[in-house]
Simulated assay, not measured.
Amino acid sequence: MSEMRAPLVAHIVYSFRIGGLENGVVNLINAMPASRYRHVVIALTDCDPDFSARVRRQDVDFISLRLPPGHGVRHYLTLYRLLRRLRPDIVHTRNLAALEMVVPAWAARVPVRIHGEHGWDSSDPGGRSRKYRLLRRLYAPFVTHYIALSVQLSSYLTRAVGVSSARVTRICNGVDAQRFVPAGRRAVAPEGFANDNCVVFGTVGRLQTVKDQVTLVRAFGRWLAGDALARQYARLVIVGDGPQRAEVEAAIAAADVAGRVWLAGAREDVPQLLQGLDVFVLPSKAEGISNTLLEAMASGLPVIATDVGGNSELVVPDSTGCLVPAEDPAAMAEAMQAVFHDPERRRAQRVAARRRVEAEFSLDAMVDRYMAVYDRMLVRAGQAVAAAG
């Protein structure tokens, strides 16, 4: 008797490039046993070859549909035909940009259609848009089950969209604690940028409005303008690239901190760059559960984060870091100044941040929860589930 072939999961995303959501897909595929599930990644736009190479499994295909802007009914046939050819057991869409593809998945008779809410749309930080709520309600009948990454997103689905709580499972991101590890601060910045006496603050994220690196630069400049010691020894590293780069550069010039800020650009060596920091700052206007924040904590970094989305589910104030209001340079500057002048606090929070990740946000626990949802939904749909190996 031939061995059962593992069920196939089709992960449908808007694009497959550097980003927190996409990193989560990579981690999930890499850590999930091949005997349990097979995978294919379908991007409505394109799959970046360099980023796709982060998936270590050789049996994963990457399909770029290259659909033009304005996805809608006219594109359903393209995906319908693809899904009829692939015959996945599960379609797993993520965020609003890919949600509508549950309709052609339903038409193609895919048994299980899971939708993940990872964070707010960049044009709707906080989920206040009536239009987006209505769109989610429109597509809800075609979704078998939802996965929300934070309590806030779970509540949004049940209260604002009207999804039954029985159809929503909260699964927090997990972090690869073997890849992101604490280390004595590495010299990763350009020569002469920071000496051993400096305290290096840093952030990682795409340079776009919702990530709000501009507020971080303004906070840094505001602080340094009134703190002579910090002006001598504080440094800021901003990792990432994107459409707001010019605004970030302008903010650096306006704050007169050009020699004290390093714009590192988009990088592949984020674990090493995090090891070059002393404090991590997340200035976002909106978040789901931030992969980057978890990676920083796994790297043993104290955290200053805005009190938005799922950040309060990760950061324990006075233990692993602190939370500040979004879009508030004064509050962020005050928090940066406090941790700069308190090396003992930094040392204690480094230890606490790493311990929290190890105890609460392991990659293995995240994968187990995803597989449990996949298994349960397949059984309900009358489909076979591969035995745990």
Rank of each mutant, 00 (worst) to 15 (best):
Q178T: 15
R170C: 12
G265S: 04
E268P: 04
A34H: 03
N291M: 13
S154L: 11
G242C: 11
R222F: 03
R74Q: 14
K211E: 04
A330E: 15
R260K: 12
A296S: 13
G70F: 07
F62G: 07
R376E: 15
R17C: 11
V210D: 08
L277P: 04
A31M: 06
A97F: 08
Y76R: 02
A43Q: 04
S312A: 15
E191H: 08
D227Q: 04
H71Y: 10
A98D: 09
A352H: 07
Y132R: 15
S123E: 09
P283H: 04
M366V: 02
V324P: 01
D342H: 15
A254G: 03
A97D: 15
R133G: 14
P329C: 08
L294P: 04
R128A: 11
M371Q: 13
I12T: 06
Y76L: 11
S154R: 12
S299I: 05
G276N: 00
L96I: 15
V257C: 15
P283S: 14
A266S: 14
V175Y: 02
M101N: 03
A258L: 05
G310R: 06
G162L: 14
S129D: 11
R170W: 12
G119E: 10
A230E: 01
A187M: 00
V60C: 05
N173G: 13
H11A: 02
P111S: 06
S64I: 06
I171Q: 14
Q275R: 14
A305K: 01
T169P: 05
A219S: 11
S122F: 11
P271I: 02
N30I: 07
D89G: 14
I114S: 10
S155V: 06
E117T: 12
P325T: 04
H11K: 07
M371N: 14
A286C: 05
D269F: 03
V217Y: 13
Y76E: 10
R56F: 00
A330K: 10
L277T: 04
V110P: 03
A228C: 04
A97K: 12
D318L: 11
E327I: 08
A365N: 10
A10P: 09
V281Q: 01
R245N: 03
D318M: 12
I114H: 12
T292M: 06
R54C: 03
R133M: 09
A225I: 04
C47S: 08
E247W: 02
L99M: 13
E117L: 15
K285G: 03
S362I: 01
C198T: 00
L79S: 07
R113P: 02
A225D: 13
P243D: 06
M32A: 14
K285E: 09
A253I: 11
D124W: 09
D307P: 00
S64Q: 09
L216I: 06
G288R: 02
G288F: 05
R56A: 07
A97E: 15
M297R: 02
A384M: 06
P104S: 07
D256A: 13
P329N: 10
A108I: 10
I114E: 10
